[in-house]
Design a protein around this nucleic acid. Structure first.
Lengths: 187, 187
DNA sequence: ATATTTGTCGACTGATTAGTCGGTTTTTAT
DNA sequence: ATAAAAACCGACTAATCAGTCGACAAATAT
């Protein structure tokens, strides 16, 4: 049964999102995952390693989701919009994951993640942007700057939608409007 | 000497920004502040109370800064821009404070802060926005929505400027450009 | 002067935690 | 069938940490 690893990651995610990294003892994670204490340390040598592994796992799942749902045809704007919407819907459907990521990036942990790993995940998003810039569809500004702007808005909008509780359709409208606002800004 | 309280807050800020809330033992804070262990708990009954007090302290200082540097004359756009620039420059000059706030908001702690306290600090910023909306200077969208958008961009831009190291003048340019971008988007 | 309150100290404690270890079961390879 | 390796267990430990306590000092009040 190799899916005990998954069980551990899943339990850790739930508990971290609820009580934070340090508010969650490894013993509780093991119990919640239905494995022994030692088993946790069989898969992850340290708690830190578990946290980093969880981060990478989530990032991978997000990248997969966006890749899967990417429309390969259509205008550049349409494809970018697709990415934007997918990121937000994923975040809305995976608020534990999102809370974890937020906690993670505003902690000392990111230093422990190999640099290439990070870049690999962002490149997929930035290359579409790069193309849009080259085609003159959006302003000629540094890609990582634009990426930062979009990302910030995604983060912020998610928090906003998460703390108010709108109907599904209102959410959808807000997300759409926000993208159009962003697009106008970058055009 | 009642400024031991300040000494404790200041040491806590430095250490929290460096190692996170839970990576920082109270004993280390006391040592760094030059006071005894028990003294820390004389001023703050629990570690949590210290963390919340530090949050409120920082928020107050930020609000003061923005208020002090607010130009009372000038166009609405100019005043809004002033606020935007001041927030960013403050953040750039107080990265420990900023790191702390980021950590704080993506943790379970905000639940411990009285709601009025939060609203009090945001109202000052939102009321200028409210006026801009009423005057038709910017799009008629919910104030807190617009506030969220601006805030996200401030957060994101700060992170961006912090991780690249641009010259002062490049920073200034980027900040200016970003505000103009934002303004165009909201107009 | 005296009493009272407030601030300060640092040794101490009870609880908790990350991580270990020796042994058992399960899987895989031969 | 047998041996070797990998997964798994849970009691245990060494260390750490938040918070206490009783004693002392300084300031304030009477």
């Amino acid at each position: 049964m190799l899916d005990k690893r998954k069980e551990i990651l899943s339990a850790a995610l739930r508990l971290f999102a609820e009580s934070g990294f340090h508010g969650t003892p490894t013993s509780k994670i093991a119990r919640e995952a239905g494995v022994a204490n030692g088993t946790l340390f069989h898969y992850f040598a340290t708690k830190d390693e578990l946290i980093v592994a969880l981060y990478i796992d989530i990032k991978e799942r997000l990248a997969c989701h966006i890749e899967e749902h990417a429309a390969d045809d259509g205008s550049l704007k349409g494809r970018l919009k697709e990415q934007f919407l997918n990121a937000l819907y994923w975040a809305l459907d995976h608020s534990d994951e999102f809370r974890f990521i937020q906690q993670f990036v505003s902690s000392p942990y990111p230093a422990l993640v190999p640099h290439e790993q990070i870049e690999m995940h962002t490149r997929k998003h930035t290359q579409l942007l790069q193309k849009a810039i080259e085609d003159g569809k959006i302003k000629s500004l540094p890609v990582d700057y634009i990426f930062m702007l979009i990302n910030s808005v995604i983060m912020g909008l998610h928090g906003y939608l998460d703390s108010n509780d709108f109907s599904k359709s209102t959410q959808h409208e807000l997300i759409n409007e926000t993208f159009e606002l962003l697009w106008d800004m970058l055009r």
